[in-house]
Amino acid sequence: MIPQTFDYVRARNVGDALKALAAKDGTKVIAGGHSLIPLLKFRLAQPARLVDIGHLDELRGVTEVRRGAKIGAATTYRDLLESKLLAERYPIIAEVTSGIGDLQVRNKGTIGGGLAHADPAADMPAVMLALDAQLVLRSKRGKRTVAAREFFQGAFSTAMAEDELLIAIALPPLPRGAGTAYVSFEQAASGYALAGAAAVVKRSRSTVAHCTLAMTGISDRPYLVRAAEQLVGTQGLPDAIEHVAAQAAAGVEVNGDIHAPADYRRHLAVVAARRALQKAFVRSKK
């Protein structure tokens, strides 16, 4: 049951939704509703009105953009899993998505909704950082693109303005032959990440030519690990990977809660990072 009343309007197109948001009258966007409805039940969100974009075809689906891809913000996790283009170009998307929620949640929950919700323990944001995803925002004032690494600004807080709508996620091409991996330790009941790591590794002959590592669940927001660049130029041997993984939570204010005290979470961060880097390295082409 939702204790608070609100108005509801179904957008006929994106312009309709932008108009509703421009009113700045306490309107919130609903797509799949799988982040928002739980908040409404607990009065953690108290919008005056919901504008529904969940059924808008123009916001759904995965399209090929040169060697990359564009994902409509209202694309469900189920549709991500069924996308051949994503499976071929970004196998890490299926790897992370198959562990999000459960079958029913993936049928209704949307990638854009999850990203805009910005739960600090959500899995997908780390993958977006590792892939250098670009988030396309629109408002009546215009359109702008924000890199994932600048989008997440704190727990449940993003770079989006009140009148902006996330309409798409653009994924640039991965370096050729790169291997990717997402590894997480889940909180047993919720499935959210106690610590999650997304890695991209490219090899050139016998050395690592590119390495990106992003973490989630550790702090108030997902982040890129700068030390990942220290793997570049090495042979990707276990010692070199361990050296980078050991810095997975360096300089970060680590969360502690009943599920994982800060010291334990810091340990999990290192293990998740090590495993993700190892997997991505093994999966990369020599």
């Binding site: 509801y8 509703g33 029913q104 049928n107 209704k108």
Partner: peptide
């Protein structure tokens, strides 16, 4: 999942969907 129904053939938890949706 006790409230699962099919919406356009896909299993959905009906406690996490508004009737208006």
């Amino acid at each position: 999942g006790a409230c699962t129904v099919l919406i356009d053939g896909r299993a959905v938890k009906s406690c996490t969907m508004l009737a208006v949706q």
